[in-house]
Amino acid sequence: MSKVLIIAEHLNGQLNTATARCVTCARALQPEAIDVLVLSDAPAAVAAQAAKLDGVSKVLNVARAENAHPLAAVLAPQIAAAARSGAYTHLLLPSTTFGKDVAPRAAALLGVGQVSDIMSVTGPHTFTRPIYAGNAIVTVETPSDALVVGTVRTASWPAMGEGANTAPVEALPVDAVLPTHTRFVGLQQASSERPDLQSAAKVVSGGRGVGSKENFEIIYKLADKLHAAAGASRAAVDAGYCPNDMQVGQTGKIIAPELYIAIGISGAIQHLTGIKDAGTIVAINKDGDAPIYEVADIGLVGDLFKLVPELEAAL
């Protein structure tokens, strides 16, 4: 039987929903236990949120001042020690920038390879994952006698809900020497009143066709009308129309909203990689031959500067 340890991702005392997606992935392993490890300077609030997730057996806290910020070099030795001490068969993190930073470092300390971007579980040691920007899906098998370390492709797994679960919360003593060679300086958070791009039910994205930073206002306006997050193609980010953290695609964020509206986005393969799990894709572009229409559920061809304000008014 499998025993899973999930590393909680959190910021400012809030558990990231990516962790609840990891729980869903962990449950696909049909394990005997799913424990969540919270590494923080003050883990109580985050641990309380994790304890409510359906399927979680136990929440383990490591409260250390060094854990105030998620530095991979500081967290990885503690994660490796916790994975060793608890006789776990699987160690899972979300495939977010947090998980991608930390998981390989922990895996290397544990002497095992790592599975990136788990899309599906077909057995305790068999998984599928995307390669070549999602243009091929590979089935991977990890050694049957070794711990599995994986990151969970969040767009492939719905978030586990909060039910009546009240998993016990325990402090975990971790014996690990922590380095001081890596120091947190600051985090400049995108100040947005809009929903978070990675967990939003609806997303409105603009591409190069939007034409300028000023013109991006029409994307934001439509997003606000729909209570949607705002995203962008790489072309729009490269052109300086909007900040980097709005980028959707192979090298940006991989998302799976219920509704994705692509405006002035032609649909490069690297962008389509980031949206292929969306429920409904709507494309608005002036070029009816753009590749985005090959994946769009609803296509509308025309001048976005006329159509988008019209759409906003009609909703």
Binding site: A136, I137, E141, I281, E294, V295, A296
Partner: peptide, 20 residues
């Protein structure tokens, strides 16, 4: 040690073209 084997490759599930 710790090697992972790739056992099969498949094309991704395709989204079908919708309506205009």
């Amino acid at each position: 040690g710790g090697e992972i084997s790739n056992t099969n490759y498949a094309p991704p599930a395709k989204r079908s073209r919708g309506v205009m």
